[in-house]
Structures are given as structure tokens and as C-alpha cells.
Design a protein around this nucleic acid. Sequence first.
DNA 1: GGAAAAACTTGCTCAGCGTGCAAAGTTGCA
DNA 2: TGCAACTTTGCACGCTGAGCAAGTTTTTCC
Lengths: 231, 231
Amino acid sequence: MTTSTGSIPAAAATPSRRELNKAATRQAITDAALSLLRSHGPGSFTVEDIADTAGISRRTFFNYFSSTDAALAAVTHGFLDNAIQQFRLRPADEPILQSAQAALMALADPMTVAPLAELFTLTQQSTLMSHSELQAWEHCTEQIIAVARERVTGAAEGVDELYVRALAGAVISCGKAALEVWFTRRGADLSPASLAELRQLLIDSMALLGSGFTAGTSPASRSTSSASVSS
Amino acid sequence: MTTSTGSIPAAAATPSRRELNKAATRQAITDAALSLLRSHGPGSFTVEDIADTAGISRRTFFNYFSSTDAALAAVTHGFLDNAIQQFRLRPADEPILQSAQAALMALADPMTVAPLAELFTLTQQSTLMSHSELQAWEHCTEQIIAVARERVTGAAEGVDELYVRALAGAVISCGKAALEVWFTRRGADLSPASLAELRQLLIDSMALLGSGFTAGTSPASRSTSSASVSS
DNA sequence: GGAAAAACTTGCTCAGCGTGCAAAGTTGCA
DNA sequence: TGCAACTTTGCACGCTGAGCAAGTTTTTCC
């Protein structure tokens, strides 16, 4: 089928007309969803509204996403896929926490964070995260588990499932915590100073994890320095 | 009317007829939902089915729960509320990780774990957790954050939000990881040996967190002993 | 004890969701 | 050019979740 140009439908080129159309439609849908979110607020528009705005039928929308939430969560999904990609690029012998920190550093630039920040501020008022968004984080956790399992397998045959799952979950939780604190502090502020603070929060959260949260009752000694895990 | 038995509608006695009826209806709904889950499997029955089984109208169901998932998640909610209650009972000067571990120990008995274990095994095949279930965990995280914030406030005025949120999220993640590993290993096995393993997994996961996951590439040295945090 | 008030249940209705199906329209390949 | 594969779309259908108003039960107050 795909024998025309490349070999494996991997990363760079996918020039098939069909693939391009699908990608464009997908993008049109998320754009429409975001646009409606901006103008109407969360929960105040229907799938039909999105479909109309994107110039497709309601039925076609469901060929791409299973709900409005899912369309919006594409933003989060994109961000986290990016994070995992960075994470996989780290050397296999590096401590996992350090890899996680490095991967997160690579994402704290305006272009990458901006969509997530906007989505977050726009949906903030509706208390809890949507189903699809939580799924996206869960999916990311699974990916980290997979990577961690590979790395630990190198050392011992019987992989310690608890170690791997607890670590992955903790990393995600701490990353989420850093993002939450940043969002509540700075809103959608993407200035260099704000992004520097985000980076510091991410570093601090990984440091907390790496030190077993021993800093306990003396937060002053930690919140200003980048602590031990930093590169 | 209500003067016969109790005095204050606080904790123990709430003999009001209405409260009793509501509690009974609520219980009937979750029982019906669980029963249908057992007989039909997840996602194979409707709200109307539950309402019929519970002997109420569809409309009344929605007065109690917002979805089938929510009715089933009542089990998880009950378990986690119990956990938080235990957690709050711990002395305020105890390290949080130790409090968490102690609270978890108090829950690793057959009567408490059984409903959760059954729910988990019955819904296991449908991959991801339901929305309401995830909400229950999220709610528990918020509770831990609240407790942690109170405790840290005793030491410093400007509470470190990152510390509190990262810690609470990590604790929940590790607890979840321990439960997941236990479920996948032992299924719905509630034998003393299995519960002892659950307790050990919970202790180990908290120990991992307390040690900053430094055990890294030598799982053998940890999985057999109860490590440093144990009481 | 009895009537008014408050709380709860229920049936009706309705917009919206998510999916199966088959017809119509596109794209890929020879 | 024409066939095969894929995609879009309209239609239909059962289910969801919530508002509303009329009935029923419990509580309260005299």
C-alpha cells in the first residue's frame, strides 16, 4: 500500500494525500474545539457546534474523537507525547529521575507549553480534569513504566513491578504538581521569568522526589536552590 | 418523633427516618449495580437496569448518582474515605509518609479490602479506570493535601504548595501502584498470606518513596525486607 | 391527632451523545 | 480508465442526564 515513497511510516515524511487530509481534518477539529472553548467556555457547546465550525459532519467528528473532551485533550496528548519522546532519548544508564528532569526541561519553552497553558486556564474553572485528559496522563505513565522496565531489566531479570510502577506514578504526580502550582501562580503567563519559574518548579519537584521528601519542615532551604538532582 | 433515641445527629446515631431511607436506597443502588456488574460484566447494563433491580425509578437513580460509574465508584469512595479518616487520626508531629503507611496498614484487613478487590477484578478487563473512580482518587489526594498543609503550616507560615501537592500525589500514586501490583499478582485472593503480601507491598512502596527510589538497580535488597520507614 | 411544610419520588419531556449501517464521494494503483 | 480501498455523510436508534410539575412520604408545629 504505502510503497510509493518512503519505507516505514515512521517520523519525517508521510506525503500520502489521505494522511495529509486526515491530519488536516484532525487539526481543524481541535482548532474548532479550542476556538469554541475560548468563546463559549467549557461545557457550553456541543459536538455539532465543533463539527459545524470545522466544516465537517457530526458523524465524521466521531470518526476522529469520541467526545468533545477527547478533542480538547489532543493538546495534552501532544504535549505528553513530546515529553515521552524526549524521555526516550536519554541514555539508558542515566538515573530515571534525572532523565525525567532533563525531558521536562526540554519542554519548558514557550511554543511547547503555550497550548497546554491555555487549555489549562480555560478549563480551570470546571474543577476537575476531564476524562480524556486524565487518560492522557495515564497513558504517559504507562509509557514511563515501559521505559523504566526496559532499563531495570538490564540489571535484574525478574523486574520489580512495584518499583517501576511506583516510580512512574510518582514522577507523573510530581510533574503534575509542578504544573499545577505554576498555573495557579502565574496563570497563562509565558514570559521568560515565568518559564524560568516553571523550570525551577520542575527541578524542585524532581529533587523532592529524589530526596524522599526529607526537606519536610524547612521549605526555605529548598525553594530557592536547585537542589541535588539538577544537571 | 426523633426524641426517642439519640441526641445530636453527629457521628454515631442518625435515626431520622429520612436519613435511614436515603441510606438504604443508596445501598440498594450500589448493591444492584454490583450485582449487575457480576452477572453482565462492565458496560453491559443501563441505568434503567440498575433502577429496576434496586426497585426505584430511573429518575430517582439520578437523584443519588450521576452515572452507573458513579454508583460503582461508591465502593472506592468508601474505601478511600476510610483511609483518610485513619490518616487524620495520626499524631500531627508524625512524618507524613509514616502516617500514610500507618493509615494504609489499618485498611489491609479482609472486610475493608474485599469490596475494592472485587470491584477491581470485575472492571479489570475494561483497561482504564472509570471517570468517577479517578475522581475518587483525586478527591483523596485533595484531602491529603489539606492535612499535609495543616501540618506544614505549623512550622512555616508561607506553606510550600509544591511540597504539599507533590507529596500527596506521590503518596497516592505509590499506594495505587501497590494495589495494582497486588491485584495483578493475586487477583481477588483475600487469604492471610495474600493480605500480608499487600501489607508488605504498601510498606515497600512508602519506603521507596521515603528513600527517593535510590534502591534503583538492586531490587533484591528491598523486596524481602520492610526497609527503613516501617513502624 | 391533624394540617401545613419540607423533603423525596416519579413520570414526562427534551436536547445531546455515541454507534451501526449503507449509500455516496475520494484516493490509490495498475 | 476503471477497479479496489478508504473516507465522509445521513439516518436511525437506544442511552444519558437534567428540568419541571404533580404525587407521595416524612417532619414539624399547633
